[in-house]
Design a protein around this nucleic acid. Structure first.
Lengths: 149, 149
DNA sequence: CATCGGCGTTAAGTATGTCAATCAGGGTGA
DNA sequence: TCACCCTGATTGACATACTTAACGCCGATG
């Protein structure tokens, strides 16, 4: 765990995936014909991560998306493939574009700018809400993260 | 049911489908909770057009996509909302990108540029070069900077 | 004419997405 | 302690996606 905020992670018996290991999911294109459940899993984990990052409970998100918390739970755990409609609502609630969600699920290969990753630097640099000192600090942290050595 | 459909035979193209101009209202709405059949219709028409353009019969396309011709027919007629899996197969068969199909269906808003300042948050959250922990940490710092309270 | 084979559509069945109600656990305050 | 309220997870009922087997129509061949 070691997340900044203690996310009350109450795993049940069996406790599936700890968020620790995976690292990141790369956008891989192609048509994985049978490796399907993998994508559901990746999508679910991504959604859960985003939701927790936004400090939303399942029920809060359910209210925003008009999707039942029960189903959201199942989607996040990779038990179901959500429809377009649901996916779209989720993206809206998380303030993401549908494409980004789809990219995470491995469905859509495009996503030019998100893949490069240096969009973050640019965003920080041009963020009008930050003071120069804050900008510098944030950039420093970010660079220390992404810099290999 | 509701065979409000004229008996016109399945003559191939040439028949004007001009049903009074759908008119693609605007890229403004997200997903109008109830007005969503419009998009199914648009998607279906687009698929049918593309298929005929490629000189494919429903059964041929069914073979390529591993989706039954019957279902393809219904999708093209706007009777059903295909799942991601099916949509992806269709896109492949028509040699289109999934994004193009989704765009036609009106699901992806294309370029979502929100200059309202949360661009940084989004960039951080979707940066593939960050681990989940790093994301959470960076986001925490950023929020502490811009926090209004 | 009759038969065959292709076309798109329909009917009925199965699989899967989705919801409302409920459960078990944990934190908080009286 | 107990009573609350909120968290995520489960269950059973229903709606929708999807398939297989048929139908009616048309053109080509015999």
């Amino acid at each position: 765990m070691t997340a900044a905020r203690s996310v009350d992670n109450q795993a049940v018996p069996g406790d599936a995936v700890a968020v620790g290991g995976v690292g990141r999911v790369g956008p891989r294109d192609g048509v994985p014909p049978s490796g399907w459940t993998v994508q559901m899993n990746a999508l679910g984990e991504f959604i859960r991560a985003q939701r927790q990052l936004a400090n939303l409970s399942l029920r809060e998100m359910a209210a925003m998306t008009s999707v039942s918390n029960a189903y959201l739970s199942q989607v996040e755990r990779g038990l179901h493939q959500p429809s377009l409609k649901v996916l779209h609502s989720i993206a809206a609630a998380l303030q993401l574009s549908t494409e980004q969600l789809l990219a995470q699920a491995g469905w859509v290969s495009g996503t030019r700018e998100a893949a490069s990753g240096n969009g973050t630097e640019e965003a920080i640099r041009t963020d009008p809400r930050l003071t120069p000192e804050q900008r510098a600090a944030l950039l420093g942290v970010y660079r220390s993260f992404v810099e290999p050595e």
